[in-house]
Design a protein around this nucleic acid. Structure first.
Lengths: 186, 186
DNA sequence: TGGGTCATGTAACCTGTTACATGATTAG
DNA sequence: CTAATCATGTAACAGGTTACATGACCCA
């Protein structure tokens, strides 16, 4: 999956590993994170597959860099991957794993847990969500407004997800508080 | 994370690796999947850590089995993990990765993509969602209604997520269709 | 003088996936 | 007779994380 993410970025233009890391942090961070170590490893794999080529460029006053470019084979692979069926049933939700076993903690502790969770689980940490993103560096890279639309879709998703988490947590708190008031009624 | 999931299940009662796999499929499948190979591997690791003990039981007419039990150390570790801060920023969303690069496909293809996506991404495939789950085997295992409540919370999440996906896809379709009608207007 | 940016990576480890392997009993 | 259920795992590989390592330049 990361392989194809990198391939997709290189399809917009040549980049160094370092730049790829930056784009990940600036523009894909709300749905995918990648370590530098993994990026460099995947770049090697992509080159082995013939999906990208790399050229070494010497620089003055800065470290040398390796510029990576997508090949025709790579472009073919990108489109093949886009049309591939999404694999189902690979959900892996950390929050729900911890929620499932929360019976081991007290109700009061869990009310607190669900009250503070939305803040911790924010997709866009600074709360500026689309505003920040819309003025980010990524706009410079995607001149095509159509391509920028799909990028906006991913941000929409993040906003909706954040809202959903909030509603879910509120509901959990309500149900738990109902239990405690019941107990004090009797 | 899987380690602690297994620990949590063994806290409800002794189980074989096979039973753990079954519970995963029946009750945790909507937020976590685990292969048998991984379960057996993690059981070995849990035993090494002293969090569980295992005893070999011979059977007639059936293969022998290994029954795993949580230790006091294991129970301590389970609670420690529950109170641990959730690690942030490890979102990894396959759908959004593919969405991000959809500019490489035609608008018509993408409208089709977002129209069929909700069906493919269903958390509860047969559409019975809570009904099926509420009458499932898991109820037998959790006699404590309070513990069952947290399990219900995870199902609530699944239902809300499914609904959110639907709304998001509908919106994507709308925005893409608006583009095509604009084009035909001129 | 200290921290940030540019720029590269390796090594070890942990976690998850795919494929393979065995074999008896039981229900339809 | 055949498929499902019970019950165990190993091996190889793929993907992700953590820690380490280097070094110059620029700005405050």
């Amino acid at each position: 999956m990361l392989k194809h993410g990198i391939l997709g970025l290189l399809n917009y233009g040549d980049m160094t590993g370092y730049e790829i890391r930056t784009v990940f942090k600036d523009s894909l961070n709300h749905f995918w994170q990648a370590q530098t170590s993994q990026i460099y490893r995947e770049l090697q794999a992509l080159e082995k597959n013939g999906w990208i080529t790399s050229s070494h460029v010497e620089q003055k006053g800065k470290p040398d860099k390796n510029i990576h470019s997508i090949t025709d084979e790579g472009r073919k692979e990108l489109v093949r991957w886009l049309k591939e069926e999404d694999e189902q049933g690979t959900i892996r939700n950390y929050i729900l794993m911890r929620t499932f076993f929360r019976g081991e903690c007290s109700i009061a502790e869990n009310i607190e847990y669900f009250k503070t969770l939305p803040e911790k689980e924010k997709v866009f940490p600074d709360g500026q969500s689309d505003a920040v993103q819309a003025t980010g560096d990524y706009q410079k890279m995607i001149d095509d407004p159509l391509k920028a639309l799909y990028w906006k879709f991913t941000i929409d998703f993040g906003i909706m997800y954040e809202k959903m988490i909030k509603e879910w947590c509120d509901n959990c708190v309500h149900e738990l508080e109902a239990l405690t008031s019941e107990a004090s009624d009797t």
